[in-house]
Design a protein around this nucleic acid. Sequence first.
DNA 1: TAAATAGTGTCTGTAAGACACTATTGA
DNA 2: TCAATAGTGTCTTACAGACACTATTTA
Lengths: 242, 242
Amino acid sequence: MSDDRWVPPTVLVAVDLVILTLRSSRLYVLLIERGIEPFQGALALPGGFLSHEKEDLVAAAHRELAEEAGLGPDQLHLEQLGFYGAPDRDPRGRVVSAAYLAIAPRLPEPVAGTDASGACWIPVTQALAGDAQLAFDHEQILSDGVDRAREKLERSALATAFCGPTFTIAELQDVYEAVWGMRLDPRNFYRKVQSVEGFIVPAGPTRKTEGGRPARLFRPGPRATLHPPMIRPRGQADKETA
Amino acid sequence: MSDDRWVPPTVLVAVDLVILTLRSSRLYVLLIERGIEPFQGALALPGGFLSHEKEDLVAAAHRELAEEAGLGPDQLHLEQLGFYGAPDRDPRGRVVSAAYLAIAPRLPEPVAGTDASGACWIPVTQALAGDAQLAFDHEQILSDGVDRAREKLERSALATAFCGPTFTIAELQDVYEAVWGMRLDPRNFYRKVQSVEGFIVPAGPTRKTEGGRPARLFRPGPRATLHPPMIRPRGQADKETA
DNA sequence: TAAATAGTGTCTGTAAGACACTATTGA
DNA sequence: TCAATAGTGTCTTACAGACACTATTTA
């Protein structure tokens, strides 16, 4: 602090992404097989360094989303997750990672039009099982991202980001069940979700089908935060949906 | 992406601290009057650059806490808040700030044994009023920190971090009222706070006094997360306690 | 018709909010 | 005694959870 010509150290800044989506009622994360050292061959979150000195962090996140997942800025939710800056987290040197959480709606097929051909959707339970061996501290980042998603489903309208522009209440329930890892009563869910002011609004008298009686369609409502919140039942954790 | 000898840009990493405490039933934040450009003379959050290449970010936060507020690592709560990395946030160049939220218990006097003599506790309402003109994007960081504290009081035992090792229920209520900016019914608060399993535990048959009947003392309980949560009444926001 | 999913009605237990009331101190 | 704060009891209302029941489709 009293040195004469001390200059602060510079570091590299990476942007890493936890991209979650729903596929066949399960929560998936997008992972990339690393083509270069370190951790060559291991799975890692999509991400990379800033491209140039003036690049905004959010812009970098969107750039990575486009490059590695083919996802445009319009079709997903993106929020800051946290920073990860342990001195030894990257063997190449001091790298501080700015992690973002992205939620993508159901997509037609795994990864369309992607640069990184090693990209693949992996069930979150599998990626966190321990045998996956993610690169760097990415298992921690992924774990934090999933925790964040679980929490935000309670107090925000984040669940609608997993759905398309319109959705049925059953589809929305599917999101809650997959992210929370537990089953919910459809009848109570139906009433509850509609009683939360501004969460979802009817999307025309339109309909849709998939086996039984056609369901009403809804759109995301005007409110981003839910009052009262959706309550996540406690006690019996992670009753996996087969 | 296809350049031959491209190297990623390096940036400076700063650690900034939102240090909150309670003084006479109001929420205060520790601010420093800047002695150098940029923003010389303006108020800013305590913080600074990493001291050396290998310094851990949490360690840097604790170092700043000691240097600028005289606060040791034992006597406070510290958690990650978020990162702030807009390209133009610091006129000196590209600086990404790792922001931490610190909660300090009631302290005897403003800032004891401090290097930076310009440090002072300012009421949060005043610091966020707009006329304070904090340096950089520190008003945003402070605002986010206060929001975070408000939220965490609902679901975590963070409120006890504002108190000393033992406290009365009235003192705990004081925390909630100051941070949430609203009054709560003492009788219902009394029952509610005790009904939350593991939030607070009786600290001996000891007592204390301050006007009326002596109050029982409590210590923080074993649980960091509260089930069921403390509910923040909605609707009437920010009824300031005079 | 049966099977399947969508949607409604209703009961019950828990808990939040309101508030009267008792308890224990200092002045 | 009163004023002040600590702590208890109880009523009312809201709502989560359980679950019987009706509605509308395909096979």
